[in-house]
């Protein structure tokens, strides 16, 4: 195994880890933003927005992630290609494959994040909003200073599993040809003829991430619990 790692595969894997972590981190951030935004929309007085959010979460919690990824990957590329063809003098620019990857993961995880934030939000007593108003906070200040910190404390464990899922979702990148951890392992397995070393390394990377993830969120939870209740 050491032979493989020193003969260039080690570097490949490091790059793959970088790729997967970057995509996972970006998708995680975006899905949180989607979650907050959709929760705000669904609590809006405007009745249509709430049902729109419900439709969004229902559809994307039912649709296979891989289907959405392939759909976005091929259609976005085509759409941008045809757009570029209409513009005069532009050369052939291929869309970075990371964009559809991050988009589809964020959309799918955003649906889960929305459910999470909605549930956490619903637990917050009405008095907290009123106290914020009575003290003269603007809506944004109330949101950032009073509401979100409390929602965060309620949903920390779920945020942990969400971050683990966003890491696991990066495995799908291999299907559209991005050299993530799984694809690097597959290529290595095929070209060297020792699949168990390469798949073993990939599995180890994910397991280590899972352990780190659970440690970090357990720590965050204990820190938050030290204060409120």
């Amino acid at each position: 195994m050491l032979d493989y790692l020193t003969s260039g595969w080690g570097l490949q894997f490091l790059r793959a880890i970088g790729t997967s972590l970057t995509v996972a981190a970006l998708s995680f951030v975006f899905c949180i933003l989607i979650g907050i935004l959709c929760t705000l929309l669904s609590r809006n007085d405007f009745r249509g927005s709430a049902s729109l959010v419900n439709l969004y979460t229902y559809v994307f919690r039912s649709l296979p992630d891989i289907l959405l990824l392939i759909l976005i990957f091929y259609s976005l590329d085509g759409a941008i290609q045809s757009l570029l063809n209409r513009l005069p003098g532009s050369s052939d620019i291929r869309l970075n494959a990371y964009v559809p990857a991050i988009m589809s993961t964020s959309i799918v995880l955003g649906a889960y994040a929305t459910e999470l934030f909605k549930a956490g939000w619903a637990d917050i007593p009405k008095g907290q909003f009123e106290a914020g108003q009575a003290l003269g906070f603007t809506r944004v200040q109330s949101l950032v200073l009073v509401i979100l910190p409390q929602v965060y404390r309620k949903i920390i464990p779920h945020l942990g599993s969400l971050s683990l899922i966003s890491m696991k979702e990066t495995a799908l990148l291999s299907v559209i040809g991005i050299p993530d951890i799984v694809r690097t392992a597959s290529i290595g397995a095929r070209s060297t003829g020792s699949p168990f070393v390469f798949y073993g390394i990939a599995i180890a990377i994910f397991v280590i991430f899972a352990i780190l993830c659970s440690r970090v969120f357990a720590y965050l939870e204990s820190r938050a619990r030290a204060g409120a209740q």
Binding site: K168, V207, I211, C213
Partner: peptide
Amino acid sequence: IRGVPLLL
């Protein structure tokens, strides 16, 4: 097992 992607 829960930490490893199904695809892998």
